Amino acid sequence: MIVDINTKKTDNVFGAVWLSTLLLTYNEIEIEKSNEIYFSQTAIQDLAQKICTKTVHNARISQWCNGDHPNNNYNYLRASGPKRRLTRQGEYLGDKEYPDRLFSLDTIIIETANKEVSYRELLEWYRTTYSRIDLVVE
């Protein structure tokens, strides 16, 4: 997967964490045809830092965006030991499960030699395909 990160920057650190986890998940399920949905915090942080203009600290992934942490602010991620996965839409009854308006809906987020995926298409994939698959939760 090639993500055109040069023009797709945000100053929303929490949104960058969510989007990076969405991109990792999309890549595994749609491109790699894998069922791997849990990612290391380092993998999430590294991609989020490429998307964000601000510094993405590890606490954003381990605590602030982790719906399983008692002091969280957002329910973007679920924990399984040291790894994280994207929260499915509805897991927290719609409460802070994904950011609002991170990018314009027509913004191309993924560009490969034979495919372009817009932010709108990623959101639709998140809401339908990902949020409806049977997850093997660890």
Rank of each mutant, 00 (worst) to 15 (best):
E121T: 09
F103K: 04
E121G: 03
I133C: 06
I5D: 03
P99R: 10
K54Y: 15
L86I: 09
F103N: 07
L105I: 09
E28F: 09
E116N: 15
S40I: 04
I29Y: 15
V3S: 03
K8L: 05
K54N: 15
C52R: 01
L77F: 06
F103E: 07
N114T: 11
P82N: 13
P70N: 10
T10Q: 00
R78Q: 12
I133S: 08
L123H: 02
A43K: 11
R84F: 12
K50Q: 14
I110K: 01
K54S: 11
G94M: 10
Q89P: 00
V56T: 10
V13N: 04
D4K: 00
C52W: 01
T55Q: 15
F103A: 08
E32M: 06
L135S: 11
L123A: 01
D106G: 06
W125D: 02
V3W: 07
Q63L: 03
A113W: 03
I29H: 10
N75S: 01
T87K: 06
R60C: 14
E116M: 08
D4I: 00
E28I: 03
L105N: 09
K115N: 12
L123Y: 02
L122F: 06
R60Q: 14
L77T: 01
T129F: 12
D68K: 11
S62C: 01
K33C: 08
S34V: 01
K96A: 14
T42F: 11
K8S: 10
D46H: 13
A48H: 14
H69R: 05
H69C: 05
N35Q: 13
N27M: 04
T21H: 07
L102G: 04
V56A: 05
L77Q: 02
N73E: 15
S80L: 02
I37Q: 13
G67S: 05
A113S: 14
L19P: 00
P99T: 11
R120F: 13
G67V: 04
F103P: 01
N71F: 11
R84A: 10
T55S: 11
V17T: 00
S104F: 07
A43G: 09
Q63F: 01
A48K: 10
S80K: 07
R60E: 12
E121K: 13
K50R: 14
K50P: 01
K50L: 13
A59D: 12
D11M: 04
S34C: 01
L23P: 00
V136E: 15
A113P: 00
L19A: 11
P99Q: 12
N27E: 14
I2F: 14
I44D: 08
G15R: 07
D68F: 05
N72F: 11
N71R: 13
S104E: 15
T53H: 03
V137Q: 09
Q63S: 07
I31H: 10
L22P: 02
E116D: 07
V117N: 02
G15S: 08
D4Y: 00
W18S: 04
S104D: 13
G81C: 07
F14Q: 13
I37V: 14
T21E: 07
S118T: 15
W18Q: 06
L93E: 11
D100G: 06
R88K: 15
E36G: 01
T21D: 08
I109F: 02
I5A: 05
D46L: 10
